Deep mutational scan, measured.
Amino acid sequence: MKVIFLKDVKGKGKKGEIKNVPDGYARNFLFKKGLAIEATPANLKELE
């Protein structure tokens, strides 16, 4: 799953980066803790 990092996550990504991460990791950790959001076309446009 492609995500946009909202905060730095040690060993995974830095704020503003767009990366592919495992689906479970994104849903169960990154999204729940507010560390990242899904890289949807709308979210990507908002980032620019």
Rank of each mutant, 00 (worst) to 15 (best):
K14N: 10
F5T: 00
Y25N: 04
A26T: 06
A39P: 03
F29I: 13
K12I: 15
L6I: 13
D8E: 08
N43K: 09
I18P: 01
N28F: 10
L35V: 04
D8T: 12
E48S: 13
K10D: 10
N28P: 00
D23E: 15
N43H: 08
F5M: 04
L30K: 00
F31D: 04
L47V: 11
K32L: 13
P22Q: 09
E38Q: 10
L30D: 01
K12T: 14
K10T: 11
F29V: 15
D23L: 14
G16H: 08
K10V: 12
K19H: 10
K14H: 10
K15W: 05
G13L: 02
L47Q: 09
G24N: 12
Y25T: 04
A36R: 00
L44F: 07
K19S: 07
L30V: 00
N28Y: 13
A26R: 02
A39V: 07
N43W: 07
I18S: 03
F31Q: 03
E48H: 14
N20R: 13
G11M: 05
E17I: 03
A42G: 09
A39T: 02
I18A: 04
D8V: 04
V21A: 03
I37W: 05
K15T: 09
G13T: 03
M1E: 02
D23V: 15
G13M: 04
E17G: 02
P22I: 06
E17P: 00
E46G: 12
V3T: 01
K19P: 00
K10L: 13
L35F: 11
V9W: 05
E48D: 12
P22F: 07
D8G: 05
E17Q: 10
E17A: 05
V9D: 01
P22E: 11
N43F: 10
E48K: 12
K10M: 13
A39N: 03
N20I: 15
G24Y: 14
N43Q: 09
L6F: 03
A39R: 01
M1W: 05
T40Y: 06
N28R: 09
E46T: 14
I18M: 07
D8P: 05
N20V: 15
D23S: 14
K33E: 14
F5L: 07
G34S: 06
G34D: 05
V9F: 03
E48Y: 10
K14W: 09
K10G: 08
R27Y: 13
T40I: 08
Y25E: 06
L6H: 01
Y25S: 03
A39E: 02
D23K: 13
L47H: 11
G24L: 13
V9N: 01
F29H: 13
I18F: 03
L30H: 01
K45H: 11
K12L: 15
P41M: 12
E17N: 04
G24P: 09
D23Y: 15
R27Q: 10
G13S: 04
G24W: 15
F29K: 07
K33T: 12
K14A: 10
Y25K: 05
L6V: 09
G13Q: 02
N28V: 04
E48T: 13
V9H: 06
A36L: 01
A39F: 14
K15G: 03
K15Y: 05
D8A: 07
D23G: 11
I18G: 01
V21I: 08
T40G: 05
A26Q: 04
R27T: 11
M1G: 03
N28H: 11
E48P: 08
K32E: 11
T40V: 05
P41R: 09
K32S: 10
K7N: 07
F31I: 13
R27H: 10
K2I: 14
E38A: 11
Y25R: 07
I37E: 04
A36I: 06
K14G: 06
K32A: 14
V3I: 08
K32T: 11
V9Q: 01
D8Y: 08
T40R: 04
G34K: 09
D8I: 02
E48W: 09
F31H: 02
A36M: 00
T40H: 07
E46K: 15
I4S: 01
L35Y: 12
G24Q: 12
K12A: 15
E38P: 14
K15E: 06
F5S: 00
K19V: 14
K2G: 05
N28S: 08
F31A: 02
N43V: 11
K19Q: 07
G16A: 03
P41Q: 13
V3D: 00
G16N: 07
K19L: 10
K15V: 08
T40A: 05
K45F: 10
G34I: 03
K2Q: 13
K14V: 11
L6N: 01
K7G: 04
L44Q: 08
T40N: 09
L6A: 02
K15F: 06
P41A: 13
N20E: 15
L44P: 04
G11R: 05
K2R: 14
K12Q: 14
F31S: 02
K45N: 11
